[in-house]
């Protein structure tokens, strides 16, 4: 997300696109910084939300503090790393089947 503003300002193609892109408020570095702040605040709020609700865990560990947060994060890291590892083996140029 952070590098999006800078890459958005340097498109490979036409010049007019570059001007409008840097103009759009949503891709300015300032906006992106604010979006990150809001996002982190919401993340913190959802974890703090655990203080205000009563979980009914099925298995025990799913009732630990911030379970959804750490489990969701860890699952995604494992999935992405697993996918990358599989990719090393199975990735081919996208013209592979063309000939």
């Amino acid at each position: 997300m952070t590098d999006q503003g800078t890459s958005g300002a340097q498109p490979k193609q036409s010049k007019p696109a570059a001007e409008t892109a840097s103009d759009h408020w949503l891709v300015r570095p300032e906006t992106i910084r604010r979006l990150w702040i809001v996002f982190i605040a919401i993340l913190a709020a959802t974890v703090l939300g655990d203080f205000f609700v009563e979980h009914h865990p099925h298995f025990g560990v799913d009732g630990t503090f911030g379970f959804g947060a750490w489990y969701g994060f860890a699952s995604c890291v494992v999935l992405v790393l697993g996918a990358k590892a599989l990719g090393l083996l199975l990735k081919r140029p996208d013209t592979y089947y063309d000939n």
Partner: peptide, 15 residues
């Protein structure tokens, strides 16, 4: 709350 935690922290992992 659980679902929002699960999804938003997946979003964090993505970025």
């Amino acid at each position: 709350v659980y679902q929002l935690q699960l999804l938003l922290f997946s979003g964090l992992a993505f970025f």
